[in-house]
Design a protein around this nucleic acid. Structure first.
Lengths: 150, 150
DNA sequence: AGCCAGATGCGAGCGATTTGCAACTGGGTC
DNA sequence: GACCCAGTTGCAAATCGCTCGCATCTGGCT
């Protein structure tokens, strides 16, 4: 897939998404459209202020409270996920990607994604055994790069 | 073990603990002693304000900032653990018990402990594979009681 | 008993996020 | 295409959980 094709692809996905949101009764304002595109472009895990910074390049003057309000709304709509890692403001990511958990490098703050069906299954088993069903879960590994002479 | 024996046991453990802390250069003030006993008695996962409330019954007038400062100190000394569950203030528990993770009932807020060596091993494996070693981890299952006619 | 580094209480401060409110604007309606 | 109004925005103030500065007090070694 060429860069151009990838671009068209993302554009189309975003259009589908805004239509879906509209149908769900969410008004697509300039501010929200901007945030949606910023989120679609983000392949990292930005925090609210960073998203605000990026959104301002599209809609100068957009307020931080609008960013927070919209993030909350998009989270409710299931369009994005909010992650509260230790000792940092909340970070956000869109829900295009498949479910995964996170490793956070305690030295650099870098976030690495990983997934393990086996862990997921074990979690479900444990909950089941204790008479519960999992609504959601949070698994974070705070890690340090290995090897090298520390 | 009778209630009386359990009491003596706890008392002895607390004495050992304060001695160890003193040796580590931590001054045992009335406030800290109170907090230590409150923590030793707690079999739940209280938050700072609740610990403050309980400590006030031993040392009336103890300030909330002292509670926070002491909790931070005790955490540094490895005497207690701080858990930051979603959408609630931090909760604390002493380190007497073996390592475990937590299930949080989303309906009631109740915290249930569980442990799984298999999950621990899988986590370590995954980190290893990606070139990291785990410093600490956080695994929380947000759950709902099963069965019953919801 | 005396000393003093470290601890306490108080109130102010802080960072992340939420909220009240008056002005504005999508997007369905005619 | 103009109209309307419930929903959205920007701003400032508020909230929440927690930390900090500072003057005063106190464990615990001598």
């Amino acid at each position: 897939m060429s860069d151009q094709e990838a671009m068209n692809d993302k554009h189309r996905r975003t259009e589908n998404l805004t239509d879906a949101l509209r149908r769900a009764g969410v008004r697509i304002t300039r501010q929200r459209a901007a945030l949606l595109s910023v989120l679609a472009d983000a392949d990292d895990h930005p925090e609210a202020t960073e998203l605000h910074r990026r959104a301002e390049e599209v809609v100068p003057g957009i307020s931080l409270s609008t960013v927070y309000r919209t993030l909350t709304e998009l989270e409710t709509q299931g369009v994005i996920l909010r992650h509260q890692f230790e000792g940092t403001p909340a970070r956000f990511e869109h829900t295009e990607t498949r479910h995964h958990d996170h490793m956070i490098d305690v030295e650099t703050g870098e976030v690495v994604e990983f997934a393990s069906d086996r862990i997921e299954r074990l979690q479900a088993e444990i909950a089941e055994t204790l008479g519960y069903e999992i609504v959601r879960h949070r698994l974070e590994l705070y890690v340090r790069k290995k090897g090298g002479a520390d």
